[in-house]
């Protein structure tokens, strides 16, 4: 009996020790990162809260923001949920960032309305906020930097029409979730432009919750339901990856024309392989750069020229122009 008790005490101590070591290791990692946090007033620090940290789009934005931060001599951190693009997963990361009290926050809100109150808390705590990529319906952020999404949607429709050609046919959309400002605008732009092509017939819009396997399953179902499906428009990286894999799996590469928003490595590979016909690339690197620039200006009280909204350009990438240096800067480099 008593030997067992001793064993238990040992387990307790070892267990706690193991956890502490884990943390010690973790904290030593943290020490290597820019540790301006120890004296927040001494240096300007900026945090980017991504919509989902593992997405090539946000990783490229992080690169642009980090490069600009280095140029400006301010410290930069990147955070957000690695698991899902949704308010319940994003808000805890924003809250922890508020507690850390950086000089400014850049955030890609995961919902137009759910993020209003949490962002308001940041502003109340004296932290200026720039919304990047997506936005919230209440204009409390100092500025919003995003792609001109309606224009991007129109570009996508033109590119799809060109790829399908004179034969025409059914067209479907793979979207993430409704209520996200950026993708809603892309869809609106795409559908309004599509009306200019009488031979293209819009069938349905599917929502994959920004989940690649779901997008693939939904696409397989669409392919079965609409044998005349001639083209698909996927609104972002994750939905695009799913659409591409499903079309490939069905052996319909080339028959179903694909135009996708965003230009992550799998999209570019698919474009080179001919599975995807055109990509509408945003400029996340530039969004990150401009977001940091605006935040630093605001902190340094150079606020006069700051506009409430900045649109960044997008480009149509095809097999023909992918090696053009002017186009290359739009390819995402996570």
């Amino acid at each position: 009996m008593s030997r067992r008790l001793v064993a238990l005490i040992v387990v307790l101590i070892v267990g706690t020790g193991a956890i502490t070591t884990t943390f010690a290791f973790a904290s030593s990692n943290a020490a290597k990162a820019p540790s301006s946090a120890k004296k927040p007033s001494a240096k300007i620090s900026i945090t980017l809260v991504a919509g989902i940290t593992t997405d090539a789009f946000y990783l490229t934005m992080k690169k642009g923001a980090a490069a600009e931060a280095k140029k400006e001599g301010v410290s930069f951190t990147y955070t957000g949920s690695p698991a899902a693009f949704s308010p319940p997963t994003q808000i805890p990361f924003l809250n922890a960032t508020i507690a850390r009290h950086p000089s400014a926050i850049l955030i890609a809100p995961t919902d137009k309305s759910a993020l209003i109150a949490p962002i308001q808390r940041a502003i109340k705590a004296g932290i200026p906020v720039v919304t990047v990529d997506t936005l919230i319906t209440k204009k409390i952020a100092l500025s919003n930097v995003s792609t001109d999404n309606p224009a991007g949607g129109r570009l996508a429709a033109d590119a799809l029409a060109k790829a399908i050609g004179s034969a025409g046919g059914d067209v479907g959309i793979m979207a993430t979730t409704p209520g996200v400002s950026t993708t809603d605008q892309r869809i609106a732009g795409f559908r309004s432009e599509l009306k200019k092509f009488p031979k293209l017939h819009f069938t349905s819009i599917q929502y994959c919750n920004d989940d690649t396997p779901t997008a693939a399953r939904l696409t397989s179902a669409l392919l079965a339901a609409h044998p005349k499906l001639a083209g698909m428009f996927a609104v972002n990286v994750k939905s695009g990856d799913g659409v591409t894999s499903a079309v490939q799996a069905a052996g319909k590469s080339g028959k179903v024309k694909l135009v996708e928003f965003d230009a992550g490595p799998p999209q570019v590979a698919a474009l080179k392989a001919g599975t995807v016909d055109a990509l509408v690339a945003q400029y996340p690197y530039g969004i990150g750069q401009l977001g940091v620039q605006l935040a630093v200006k605001w902190i340094k009280n150079d606020r006069a020229g700051i506009k409430k909204h900045y649109g960044t350009p997008s480009a149509v990438i095809t097999k023909a122009n992918i090696n053009n240096p002017k186009i290359k800067k739009f390819i995402y480099t996570p």
Partner: peptide, 21 residues
């Protein structure tokens, strides 16, 4: 999760910690 984000440590550690616990 909150503490790790404030520490600026990858929040993946949270899952490790919870699993061990």
């Amino acid at each position: 999760q909150n503490g790790l984000v404030i520490m600026n440590v990858p929040s993946f550690w949270q899952e490790v910690l919870v699993g061990v616990t």
